[in-house]
Design a protein around this nucleic acid. Structure first.
Length: 312
DNA sequence: AGGCGTGCTTAGGTCTCCAA
DNA sequence: TTGGAGACCTAAGCACGCCT
């Protein structure tokens, strides 16, 4: 790995980002091309690393895209075109601005774009699905398995009740109200685990090794839950340390290869690796920014390559 | 036709912010 | 400190679509 990343990102984090990019590159189901893909990736990265500065995330993402493109055998020119599309035209709205911050300069140096065109708005546009109310009554948008998983991840990180942040950072295609509504039905479903029920998307947990195929065609069956995706201890957690702990919980199924351990085992494992208390997390920066230091996380990477799509 | 899962709407309660 | 306004969350109910 390029040593220039070492100061800000651990090998573990870099591998995570690479896997995410690869998984999205392999996904051709983007109706509007790279715009949605890029926004999804950026939203995902910001959700994964809420304590990183946005410019850091963008910078790492940009450089990894170039690196991965190079490794894929594409020409450097193609890489520049790709990264131009990613960091400029397809993410945020370029607007004129009299000043340039470091992020802009960094991106400009990467892409060769004129600084004026590189200025991004502070917040990426949310991909809320806007449907006329009248039409919405008749066209319901079912939650996809991926959206549900994102919901569960957000639940782990932000805890119960923070639907706004879950919507903003995890399930970017749903409004907070929609997330809240989904959570309401989800918790009702979880409470009825002993009953015989039809398959529901709410039966999917973060730890399911083999995702359910949501085709609404399943028959009645006794559902086996791979593990409780809902952590009651995460209720109302809002502090940064709590967020970090919850983040670790959210990642535990990922770190602990799905299908090899139960949820409790995974939680135990990550607790051991990261320390049972937040004290094990070394904080960097001025307090407003925290980061996992060293390569502790990287040292614990599974031997096998990571597959984001199958890690939950 | 009825049951069930799901998404949406809405009323009511709670919390936060801010000006007086 | 207090009261109002706005934002947010929760609970409940309704409607839609699929399955038995």
């Amino acid at each position: 790995m390029d040593p220039k990343f070492n100061g800000e990102w651990s090998a573990f984090e870099i591998t995570m980002v690479k896997s995410l990019i690869a998984s999205h590159n392999a996904n051709n189901n983007y109706a509007d091309g790279t715009n949605q893909k890029h926004n999804n990736i950026m939203n995902q990265l910001q959700a994964w690393f809420p304590l990183k500065e946005k410019r850091q995330v963008i910078k790492l993402y940009s450089e990894l895209v170039v690196e991965m493109t190079m490794q894929a055998g594409q020409s450097g020119n193609q890489s520049m075109v790709a990264i131009n599309n990613l960091v400029n035209g397809n993410y945020g709205t370029p607007v004129e601005h009299p000043t340039m911050d470091n992020m802009d300069m960094s991106l400009a140096s990467l892409t060769g774009k004129k600084p004026e065109a590189m200025r991004m708005v502070e917040e990426a546009p949310q991909q809320q699905v806007i449907i006329p109310q009248q039409e919405r009554r008749h066209k319901r948008l079912l939650w996809t398995t991926e959206e549900h998983r994102q919901f569960l991840r957000g639940l782990h990180v932000y805890g119960h009740g923070d639907w706004k942040n879950i919507s903003r950072h995890f399930v970017t295609t749903k409004t907070p109200v929609q997330v809240s509504s989904h959570a309401q039905k989800y918790f009702l479903r979880v409470e009825r685990t002993t009953e015989k029920q039809r398959f529901s998307i709410n039966d999917i947990s973060l730890n399911d090794a083999t995702p359910w195929v949501h085709n609404n065609s399943s028959t009645r069956e006794t559902l086996a839950f791979a593990g409780s995706a809902y952590n009651p201890n995460g209720h109302g957690s809002s502090s940064e340390l709590a967020t970090m702990n919850n983040l670790a919980q959210a990642w535990s199924p990922f770190l602990y290869s799905a299908g090899q351990a139960s949820s409790s085992q995974a939680t135990s494992w990550i607790s051991q690796q990261m320390g049972a208390s937040s004290a094990a997390l070394t904080l960097e920066g001025d307090g407003s920014q925290m980061a996992w230091t060293g390569d502790q996380q990287g040292d614990f990477l599974p031997e096998q390559s990571m597959d984001i799509d199958n890690m939950y």
